[in-house]
Each structure stands twice: as C-alpha cells, then as structure tokens.
C-alpha cells in the first residue's frame, strides 16, 4: 500500500486530520483567490500570500453532472460505472465562492444556502498504486 497523495499539490492542506482549502490573498487589496495565484485578478498586484480558506461554507448555486464527461475527465470510472455528481459553488467564510464537486447528486438533496463541508475523495489510482485525491463538498448536516 502506497500513501495517498493529492492529484494536484496545493489545493488543500495534506496530510492532515482536518484538511482546509488553500487559496491566496492579495496583500495590496485584500481579495482572495482559489487556487493560489501569483497575481491579483482584482488589482493586478503581485503581492500575494497563501490563505487558509477553511473547510465549510454555504451552497451558492448547483447543478448535477448527469453524463460521463469526455477527456480530460480522468477518474477510475467507466461508462458502465459512472455515477452522476453534483457541481456547485460554495461561499466560504471570506466570501470567496469556490467551485467544487458535490457528493449529493440529486436535485432533492441540493438547496441554495444549505451548509456544506469539505471532504477528500479519491479520483483514481496512479501507476505506483497511490490513491490520487481531490476535494469535494457534501451537506454539513444529515438530511432526513
């Protein structure tokens, strides 16, 4: 068994017990970005620092991906095993809205404004047998 690792470094804190999303903040104008950027989309400044965006927020909008995407989509799934997934923007504490896969994948389970929390999922396994990880959000409260 080889240790699991992020599919892409720097999107979330890892390894750690409770991972948080990592973005950047502009030291000139204060605006946040995700993923980390070297220059600011708001003021064009280049004075950026890493920012902990936390692991919780509210659902700002959503949809459901009902068919398996073509490449560059690259998971362990096949046409036969594909499971629809939710996609949404999560409004984080700093106000930034982060686009994410959602565990919930049916309209009945998704509502604008609902509290969401971060979780880490496996995208696929690499040639060495390591699980490659990414982030997604799921409902913060059990739904009845």
């Amino acid at each position: 068994m080889v240790a699991a690792k992020p599919l892409h470094e720097g999107l979330f804190s890892w390894p750690t017990e409770i991972p948080n999303l990592i973005g950047s903040q502009c030291l000139d104008c204060g605006e946040y970005a995700f993923p980390k950027q070297n220059s600011c989309r708001a003021c064009s400044g280049q004075n950026m620092t890493s920012a902990d965006l936390g692991n919780a927020g509210n659902l700002w909008t959503w949809t459901v991906q009902s068919f398996m995407p073509k490449t560059p989509y690259h998971t362990h799934e096949t046409q036969e095993t594909f499971t629809p997934y939710g996609v949404g923007y999560i409004e984080m504490a700093c106000g930034l809205k982060v686009e994410s896969r959602l565990r919930e994948n049916s309209p009945e389970l998704l509502k604008i404004g609902m509290p969401m929390k971060l979780e880490i999922i496996t995208v696929r396994t690499d040639d060495e047998g390591s699980d490659l990880l990414t982030f997604q959000f799921c409902a913060a409260e059990e739904q009845s």
Partner: peptide
C-alpha cells in the same frame, strides 16, 4: 491546471446550469 478537467469541472454545460 489539469486537475480541473480531470475531476470533471471543465464543462460549459455545468456553468450554464449553475
């Protein structure tokens, strides 16, 4: 970066829906 497409976020249809 590639992760955005590989994890299934790079679809115009999703954006239009959202």
């Amino acid at each position: 970066d590639d992760w955005y497409g590989e994890t299934g976020l790079m679809l115009t249809t999703q954006y239009f829906g959202m």
